[in-house]
């Protein structure tokens, strides 16, 4: 039996090529050495979460029905457009924050490898300061530090809360991008610098033409990871009163003032984030495998 299996499948290290029995056996032994079962999320796990949310909602619906009020699902359905709109606002904040953070962070990261010691030290301090600060505190800092409007040559430029929150969130993104850029540049073999130098490229040309283009591949997976983290952190803006999905949910819940709605509503918000962030995480993982640095 065993011999026949081996003849059929040959010897392989790739689990997918093994017969199902063998595959399960390997997985079991791996889990025994780990001590805990390995959790590998599949797309259908999202469906499970959805089911739990719906069940909770249905249970609450049944209770609500007894009191002759509109059911939970009906209540949720009524508010879905508003909540989705709020979620889209979160996405918008994450896009903008990522854009600003990436632009500033790239400059800061390049400054970290400058040949001028003051530039290098200054950018290093800024990077470390914002990288090791709690995001929420930075957010509060931006909220209360920045004015609510600017006066430029007689014009009044309003500076709404959500813009301040976006700037607040882009600060830690900037610091993390700065580290990603510095790490990627330093991971390029020194031979590339030498070759470029010996061809009379200036330092600036070397960086722009030769080093940074090679860094993009290496930076993409950590950068996408950072984006997923930022997206999940956008709900922090609710603390400072920006009308994003969490704020809206809280408002809706207090308007409805029905405790049984709490779980399904927050469950719905969780589901929205999961559906958005999980594919990013999967895609990042795939890229990491593809761009794994070969030595």
């Amino acid at each position: 039996m065993r011999a026949a299996g081996e003849r059929l499948y040959g010897t392989t290290d790739l689990p997918v090529l093994l017969p199902p029995g063998e595959r399960l056996l390997r997985r079991a032994s791996r889990e025994r050495t780990d001590g805990v079962p390995r959790l590998t999320l599949k797309a259908w796990h999202g469906a499970v979460i959805a089911a739990v949310v719906l069940l909770a909602a249905a249970a609450a619906q049944a209770q609500g029905a007894a009191e002759a009020r509109p059911g939970v699902l009906t209540a949720l359905w009524k508010w879905v457009p508003l909540l989705v709109e709020g979620f889209l606002f979160n996405i918008a904040i994450s896009f903008l924050g990522m854009g600003i953070g990436t632009a500033l962070g790239t400059v800061l990261g390049v400054m970290q490898i400058s040949l001028l010691p003051p530039v290098r030290a200054g950018s290093w301090i800024v990077t470390q300061f914002f990288r090791n600060a709690p995001w929420l505190v930075l957010l509060f800092f931006c909220m209360f530090l920045l004015p609510f409007e600017f006066r430029v040559m007689g014009f009044v430029v309003p500076f709404p809360d959500w813009v301040k929150a976006t700037l607040g969130l882009s600060l830690p993104v900037m610091a993390n991008v700065s580290e990603i850029v510095r790490g990627a540049v330093q991971s390029i073999p020194s031979g590339q610098w030498e070759a470029a130098e010996s061809l009379a490229f200036s330092r600036r040309q070397t960086l722009v033409q030769i080093i940074l283009p090679q860094c993009i591949k290496r930076m993409l997976p950590p950068w996408m990871n950072l984006y997923a983290i930022l997206t999940m952190a956008t709900v922090l803006a609710s603390v400072v009163g920006v009308s994003e999905v969490m704020t809206l949910t809280q408002r809706v819940l207090s308007a409805e003032s029905r405790p049984e709605l709490l779980v399904p509503f927050y469950g719905f918000v969780l589901l929205l984030f999961f559906m958005y962030c999980y594919p990013i995480a999967r895609f990042t993982h795939k890229l990491e495998l593809r761009y794994v640095v070969k030595l």
Partner: peptide, 21 residues
Amino acid sequence: DKLALRKKVGMVFQQYNLFPH
């Protein structure tokens, strides 16, 4: 002027150091 000097001197390395992109 390092760049002017290097325009006159070509160099080939043990590890080739071609630009992979």
